[in-house]
């Protein structure tokens, strides 16, 4: 039984389309995580228990769960039980985004640090305008730690997103599955998918490396 790798090349259209979908899911989820993570981090760092405890629980919950478990629960469990018509793409982005918002919250907390929050509180209690303090003192330092960590998280998200085909998103893997079922050649198509994944992830990993070098020049790195 010979290997027919040309099939993969012939199917590059749908495979590339699937890759784009995967990237879309990852990017949108990243956006969600970045946006949600910040208020979460602020709540978590608050001195008011009524704010910090729910945030803590949220973070613990999402850090303890796996994407597959969450996605199945949301798409098949929640949606069917409460009769919500959730599109697969939306569900995937939602789950991936919510999950990683918890990790991003921790990144924000490390980046801004107790120093950052403390300075803001000090400014507030002294009646000083917070914005300038935040923008010129805290933010530059925070950004140096946050951006590389967020970039690393994105690469992880790309890898995690491989399973969204399970709920019907036409990502790279689902395209590969479809082609496999049609031609009955899993090895060729999964090899193709693996190669594409490898190239994409490798590319972004290198990018992350560049970012890390650029941003860590003057800062003592803390391990997230």
């Amino acid at each position: 039984m010979g290997l027919k790798l040309e099939l993969v090349w012939n199917a590059r259209g749908p495979l590339l389309l699937g890759t784009l979908v995967t990237l879309e899911v990852a990017f949108l989820a990243l956006g969600l995580a970045l946006v949600l993570g910040l208020p979460l981090a602020i709540l978590r760092s608050s001195r008011l228990k009524i704010l910090s405890v729910p945030a803590f629980l949220y973070i613990q919950f999402f850090r303890g769960t796996a994407l597959y478990v969450l996605v199945l629960w949301v798409f098949f469990g929640l949606a069917i039980a409460f009769n919500i018509n959730l599109p697969p793409f939306g569900a995937a982005v939602l789950c991936l985004g919510l999950l990683n918002s918890a990790y991003m919250a921790e990144v924000y907390r490390t980046g801004l640090g107790t120093v950052g929050f403390g300075q803001l509180e000090a400014a507030r209690s002294l009646g000083l305008p917070e914005m300038p303090v935040f923008r010129h003192v805290v933010l530059p330092q925070a950004v140096r730690i946050i951006i590389p960590s967020a970039a690393n998280l994105f690469v992880d998200m790309l890898k995690d997103a491989a399973i969204v085909g399970v709920v019907g998103v036409w990502d790279l893997m689902k395209q590969a599955d479809r082609l496999t079922k049609f031609y009955f050649r899993p090895f060729e198509f999964y090899t193709g998918a693996a190669l594409v994944y490898f190239v994409v992830v490798f590319f972004f990993s290198r990018l992350v490396g560049v970012l890390e070098k650029r941003f860590s020049r003057h800062v003592r790195k803390e391990k997230v």
Partner: peptide, 20 residues
Amino acid sequence: RSLPLYVFLLWMYYGFKIAF
């Protein structure tokens, strides 16, 4: 470190079985 588990799993399980 660049390979998603899902991809590698399918590749190894199905790929090898059918091809070889």
